[in-house]
Every structure is written in structure tokens, then in C-alpha cells.
Design a binder for these strands. Structure first.
Length: 730
RNA sequence: GGACGAUUAGCUCAAUGGUAGAGCGUCUCUCUUACACAGAGAAGGCCGCAGGUUCGAUCCCUGCAUCGUCCACCA
């Protein structure tokens, strides 16, 4: 036996061990030994390929790798399918920042060029990221790795879009949407946050056209008054006597009608509401209900850059919203019903840049969440709700079921159009406005299809007009919501049949609506089956002060850097212990150091055992002490197994840790010292056998958590040529 | 404005209807030939507050407080 160093040196071990695992082929379920029959599948949440991995990624890698390694040892045909996400909007934001730093701008850059630049950037990141995943010990099947922009993945996404379109569940409409003037794109409801802002509530008199009376209207947005096309009052308000009359717009002098609508809150403001359909979604709804009474067409006075348009009037035109507000207040002063009041309220802001969201009316693609398909069947919402209610999908921890259901009951249609270039272009083609009928089809031009859904440019049956493709791309979550089936439909020929539905989806709780909900809906819609049986949520990894880690705060722990110093196993243990499902956890270098010490303990306990290995003859008879020790081991193993089966990784790891250190090392080894040196050869042999037995079993027990050090020691244990620990029987 | 969660040792968290546990940290002693990235030992807790149920509550119930998170188109 060659001399082992007295301290465990992860650097000298990890790379070599990972290569052995990879070369064994066992990451690929097809290449596992025959005892691995029943599939166990996890689709990795594809990390965004726009940066390097952070500690949160290390957490998910650890948790999923624990599950996969455990199930593999149990004999399951384990598939952990890795991937990378192009992360449309997020990546474009990151890339824009990069451009800004370089003194460049995406403005005026041809679509193609910007796309290709971001593509190069993303693919470089993707490659780097995969190396990082390997460093963390991820035992995933790289041969099946998928990228959200792989051509075949896009094909699947297109097919789903077409199916939704044919079912009437996806439609194009001009509706109020959330516009971020900084990022120049619309955002879904999930991509906006609400922040409290201190503003003023202005009380403005709208004079009756035919009498000296006036209706008092409260507003926070006087700059939109030029776009008012009506005043709505509650049918029971004190203004009801004016219903049907005309008032004068205090900025433009235009005559606008007074209408009655019960949506107006009697108790708020003055009980009268100005109707500005193009700048307030609630007003838009009221306008739609009163199109008969309101003759004027709604229009916009704010453009896509957040500047006032010509229709706002000469005084306001060209101003940004805030100066325009000041200016309009100045102009409105004669019409003040009373002095403005301070007013705290919630304002919608972009979740990335916190710019105030401007409601705009735009032609966008939407997914109907709560309506049934035209041909019958359940709505997307009902599909998901049904599966969760029937417990076909289980959430861990269970309280997320409530959160999930609550969101599901308040669903609105989902805007999936984004005005960015980095993403999957919506496969919709629009007929050119001009129709030049083909010879023989002069009477048929009315039948020309205005919109055609498809991957390639269609040809009109009846005329020579061209079709132009939609320039908007999908919301990233529209495609990643299809990830579990899109991946498996494009890997090996029978993968979908074999591995779908998958077993576990392990992901962060903060994307339960963005991602999990959509995967459940699309999975059921497209395949008729749930995409996964269990959703395990992990939380956010915070620093010692419970703050989120961020570059600007300087409290970021880079998992690869600390893994380099303390070893991957130590980082993994620090991540998993004390981390209950669904809860945030706390990470510090101290904690990692503690588990580095544990890895060293494992190393040295093993070293002790190996140093004492003598010739092994016939199997010696275990003494009462040996039997007790083996029994303690079995009890610990049982406990660890029970915890693992319950997805309680923290307790599983802690139990194994505790057993190894405080039972095996502190007691069993200590007590064995006298026996190993004793004159009684049979007793010494028995003690040695027990040590080896416990050590090897402990390596198995610890392997899912600390794969590197355990694999390394496993291979040094006596007993002739051994296979890899990663496929040993649990 | 709704909903959810948390409150236990200095810190991070467990467990349990009957005497409260771990890791880290702290203190003391020990370089005993696996490990000082260690060993042996110790200190440290009105289990957020107030009621209720119970023979008995840290645990179950009610209320309150504080902290946190999510959801929400009232101008």
C-alpha cells in the first residue's frame, strides 16, 4: 500500500474521477448494466446561457445529482437530461448592457447582426457553463444535452403553436399590454412588479358643455387628459344627473360624453373617472363596453419611447412623461377643483430595470388560459388544475400547491409576443395588403388567408401577394414551458415513450408560475400526460445576513471558486445540509470549510483503515462488538434511505455525516485500535473485517452527497478489482 | 387590499403532547503514531407574547406582535 497524504486534496482527485465516470458511459441510461431497468428521469432546468453559474445553480446541481445518483444505485435506469436556455429577454438585456459598456448600441443594428452576435455570446457561455456543471459533479447524460434554440426543439415549439392556433387557444389582437420604454418590448403580467410610489392625486373640473356646472375628476395622470374620450360615473353617484350629457376636455376643449358604469368606485376620489382607453387597461375595458355611447375613437398621446405625441397638443408634444405631467398641471391650474393631494400607490414597473410600465394598445399574440379549445376539451388552466387536484402532480413542500392554485384562479390571457430579436421568431405569416389575383382566380381574392402559421413562407392560393413573417419572438417561457417533452421528443427515437412523464422536476420556487405552471399546462395539452410527478422546490441561497447575493453587494460566493479551494464535495454538503425544500438557505465560507473538514475526516478514517489492512484470510467470525457496530451502521443506512425516499436531503446528509464522524470515526475506529494491535489474531482480523465493511458501506451511503471523495476511496479499498461506486448497489 | 410562511442556544436550523437537540461559533484541556481540517470535555435556552384545550403545551386551538415572501389593472 502506497503512502497516502495526510490531508485530502480534492484537486488531485476530482478531474480524474469525473473522467472515469464519463468514460464509463454510465451517465447515459442506455449504457447502464442490465440490472437498471425501470427509468427514473429528471430534466434539468436549463440554466440561462448568458453568464456563469452562480451558487443557486450549484444548489440545483447538487440536489438533482443526489437524486440521480441515489436512484442509479438503487438500480433505476437514470436519465438526467441537461440543457441550456437561450433566455430571450434576459439575455438580450445582458447583451445590451455589454454593448453599452463597449460604447455601442443595439439601435440601428440590423436584426441579423444583433442575433448573430448574441448567438456567439450565448454559445460561448453555454460551453463554459457545461464545463462548470461537470466540475460540480453533475452525472447527467451529455449525449442528450439540448439547447432551447436547437432546430428540432424549435420545430416542436412551432407544432405546439400551430396546434394552439388551430384550437383557437392562441390569437392575435390589439389589446392593452405592458410596455417597457427602456427595453422597447412588451412584457407579460409576470414580468412586471408593483412598487409603491409617492405621487399626487389631482382634482380636475370637467365643465359641462351646456351649463356652468362641472364634474370633478380625480387623476394621477393629468398628462393623458388629451386622450380622454369620456367621463364615467357610477350610476348612483352624485354626478348621475349628468349622465348622457357632454363635458369639455379641460386641455383640448373637445366635447366628450358622460357615461354610467358600475366599475367606477363610489368611495374613491370623486366617484368620477376619466376614460383614457389607450393609457389605462381598466379604461380600455370600460370603453369596449360603451362603444355605442362614445363616438370618438381612442388614441394615444404617448409614443413607444415615453414621449408625448403631436396629439397631446403643441404644449406637451415631445416632452417625456414627467415633464409633461408638470406642464399639464400648469395648464390645468385654472381647472383645479381643489389642491392636489399626496398619494401613495402601487405602480407597475419592469422587473429588470424598474422603469414604470406604460400601458399601450398593441397588436400582439396571446394564449387563452381559461377558455376551452374550439373542438372541445379542457382549457389550459383546467388541465393543470385537474392534474394537481387529482394529486397526479405533487408539490414538495405541499404548501406550494395552494400558491399554485391561487394563481391559477386569477389567470388572464398571456401575451407571448416580444419585440426583441433574441428568441424564436413567431411562425406567423401575414398576407401583403395588396392582392393581385392570379389569372383564373379573379373572384377568389376574398378567400386569401390573412394569416398562415408555419415554419416556411407560404404561397397564396389565389394571388401573387407575398407573406411577411412576424418579427416578434416568443416569450422565452412559451418555449421553455414545453421543455420536458420538447427535449425527449428530439433525443433518441424511443426516449419520449421511455422517459416521459418524467419523475421529478427540481427547480426554484420563484419560477413556479413562469415555468412550472406552463410546463404542466403545455405538457398536458400537447401530450395528454403530466410532464412530471413530483415538483421539488428549492429556495434562494443567501449570505450570512440573509441577503440575496448580488455582484453589486459584493457578497457573491462563486461555487467554482470555493470548490477549487475546499473541494466540490464540501460545497455540495454545505449546500444541502440545512436546506429544507421550499425554503431559502444560507451559505457562508465557514460552512463550506466545515464540510471540507468532513471530507478530510473521511479521507483520514479511510487512511487509518487502509494502513491497518493486513492479509485477509478466511472470513473471521464477528464478535459481539462487531455485530453491534454493523447493526448501528445498518440503522444509520436505513435512516438515510428513509430520508432520501422522502426527498429530505438535508436530514439524509446530516445523518450520514453524523454516523460517519461520531459513530464510525469517534467510536468504532477508536475501539478498534486496541483490537488491531492485540495478540488475539482472530479478534484483530474480525475488527479489520468490520472496519472495511463499514467503510465501504459508508462510501455508498455518502456517495450521492459527496461523490468524488467516496469514489476515490472506494477504488482504494481492498478486495481486488472493483467497479465504479456510482453504479454499486445501494 | 388579499394569501402564505417564520419566530427554539451567540449564528443556522431540528425534533417532540411528558427531562429540549445538532452543526458552526465560544471556553478549558490534549500535538495519544488516521486526521489540529483533530480528540476529550464544558458553558450556553421563561421554545415571540397573551389566552384556551389538557392531568400535563415548545408542540394542538384562538388572538396579538414582529419579520419575510408571494399575489393584486381602483383612477
Amino acid at each position: 500500500m502506497k503512502e497516502l497524504p495526510s490531508a485530502y486534496d480534492p484537486k488531485s482527485v476530482e478531474e480524474n474521477i469525473y473522467r472515469q465516470w464519463e468514460e464509463s458511459g454510465y451517465f447515459n441510461p442506455d449504457k447502464l448494466p442490465p440490472r437498471h431497468k425501470k427509468p427514473f428521469t429528471i430534466i434539468m432546468p436549463p440554466p440561462n446561457a448568458n453568464g456563469s453559474l452562480h451558487i443557486g445553480h450549484a444548489l440545483f446541481v447538487t440536489l438533482e445529482d443526489i437524486m440521480i445518483r441515489y436512484q442509479r444505485m438503487l438500480g433505476r435506469k437514470t436519465l438526467w437530461l441537461p440543457g441550456a436556455d437561450h433566455a430571450g429577454f434576459e439575455t438580450q438585456v445582458v447583451y445590451n448592457k455589454k454593448l453599452e459598456k463597449e460604447g455601442r448600441s443595439f439601435w440601428g443594428m440590423p436584426r441579423e447582426q444583433l442575433y448573430n452576435e448574441i448567438k456567439d455570446f450565448t454559445l460561448a457561455n453555454k460551453q463554459y457553463m457545461e464545463g462548470q456543471l461537470k466540475k460540480l459533479g453533475a452525472s447527467c447524460d451529455w449525449s442528450r444535452a439540448r439547447f432551447t434554440l436547437d432546430e428540432r426543439i424549435i420545430d416542436v415549439v412551432y407544432e405546439t403553436f400551430e396546434k394552439l392556433y388551430n384550437d383557437g387557444l392562441v390569437y392575435r389582437a390589439e389589446k392593452p399590454v405592458n410596455w417597457c420604454a427602456k427595453h422597447q418590448t412588451t412584457l407579460s403580467e409576470l414580468e412586471i412588479n408593483h412598487e409603491e410610489r409617492q405621487d399626487k392625486l389631482y382634482y380636475i373640473n370637467y365643465k359641462l358643455a351646456d351649463s356652468p356646472d362641472a364634474i370633478e375628476v380625480a387623476t394621477t395622470r393629468p398628462e393623458t387628459i388629451p386622450a380622454d374620450i369620456a367621463i364615467a360615473v357610477h350610476p348612483k353617484s352624485k354626478w348621475k344627473k349628468y349622465i348622457g350629457k357632454q363635458v369639455l376636455n379641460p386641455l383640448t376643449g373637445t366635447s366628450i360624453p358622460v357615461i354610467a358604469d358600475a366599475h367606477v368606485d363610489l368611495t374613491f376620489g370623486t366617484g368620477a373617472l376619466k376614460i383614457t382607453p389607450y393609457h389605462d387597461p381598466a379604461d380600455f375595458t370600460i370603453w369596449q363596453d360603451h362603444k355605442q355611447e362614445i363616438t370618438a375613437e381612442p388614441f394615444s398621446v404617448i409614443d413607444q419611447f415615453g414621449k408625448m405625441t403631436a396629439q397631446a397638443g403643441a404644449e406637451l408634444q415631445g416632452l417625456k412623461i414627467n415633464p409633461a405631467r408638470e406642464k399639464s398641471v400648469e395648464l390645468l391650474r385654472p381647472s383645479f377643483a381643489k389642491e392636489p393631494e399626496d398619494y401613495k400607490h402601487q405602480v407597475a414597473v419592469c422587473y429588470k430595470c424598474r422603469t414604470v410600465i406604460e400601458p399601450r394598445i398593441m397588436m400582439q399574440w396571446f394564449v387563452k388560459m381559461t377558455e376551452k379549445p374550439a373542438k372541445g376539451g379542457k382549457s389550459l388552466r383546467d388541465l393543470a388544475v385537474g392534474a394537481v387536484k387529482a394529486k397526479k402532480i405533487k408539490f414538495l413542500p405541499a404548501r406550494y400547491e395552494k400558491i399554485f392554485m391561487h394563481w391559477m384562479t386569477n389567470l388572464h390571457d398571456w401575451n407571448i409576443s416580444r419585440q426583441i430579436v433574441w428568441g424564436i421568431r413567431i411562425p406567423a405569416w401575414y398576407h401583403e395588403p395588396k392582392c393581385i389575383p392570379r389569372v383564373g382566380h379573379e373572384g377568389d381574392v376574398v378567400k386569401c388567408k390573412e394569416i398562415v402559421i408555419g415554419k416556411t413562407e407560404p404561397k397564396c392560393e389565389f394571388c401573387d401577394a407575398k407573406y411577411v413573417q412576424e418579427t416578434d419572438v416568443f416569450d422565452t417561457w412559451f418555449s421553455s414551458g414545453q421543455w420536458p417533452f420538447a427535449t425527449l421528443m428530439t433525443t433518441q427515437p424511443n426516449d419520449f415513450e421511455t422517459y416521459y412523464p418524467t419523475n421529478v422536476m427540481e427547480t426554484a420556487y420563484d419560477i413556479i408560475f413562469f415555468w412550472v405552471a406552463r410546463m404542466v399546462m403545455f405538457g398536458l395539452y400537447r401530450t395528454g400526460k403530466i410532464p412530471f410527478e413530483i415538483v421539488y422546490f428549492h429556495g434562494i441561497v443567501r449570505d450570512q445576513l440573509k441577503q440575496k447575493m448580488s455582484k453589486s453587494k459584493g457578497n457573491v460566493i462563486n461555487p467554482l471558486e470555493v470548490a477549487d479551494v475546499y473541494g466540490t464535495d464540501a460545497v455540495r454538503m454545505a449546500l444541502v445540509i440545512g436546506n429544507a425544500a421550499g425554503n431559502d438557505s444560507i451559505m457562508s465560507e465557514d460552512k463550506i470549510r466545515g464540510y471540507r473538514n468532513f471530507a478530510n475526516k473521511i479521507w483520514n478514517a479511510s487512511r487509518f483503515v487502509l494502513m491497518n489492512v493486513r492479509e485477509r484470510g478466511a472470513k473471521p467470525k464477528p464478535t459481539a462488538a462487531d455485530k453491534k457496530n454493523l447493526k448501528d451502521l445498518a440503522a444509520a443506512k436505513k435512516k438515510v434511505t428513509r430520508y432520501l425516499d422522502a426527498y429530505d436531503f438535508s436530514h439524509a446528509a446530516e445523518t450520514a455525516y453524523h454516523y460517519f464522524w461520531h459513530t464510525f470515526a469517534d467510536k468504532v475506529i477508536e475501539e478498534s485500535k486496541a483490537r488491531l494491535n492485540s495478540e488475539n489474531a482472530a479478534d484483530a482480523a474480525a475488527a479489520q473485517e468490520t472496519l472495511i465493511a463499514i467503510l465501504s458501506e459508508s462510501m455508498k451511503m455518502l456517495h450521492p452527497f459527496m461523490p468524488y471523495v467516496t469514489e476515490q476511496i472506494w477504488q482504494m479499498l481492498p478486495g481486488g478489482s472493483r467497479g465504479l461506486l456510482m453504479v454499486e448497489k445501494w
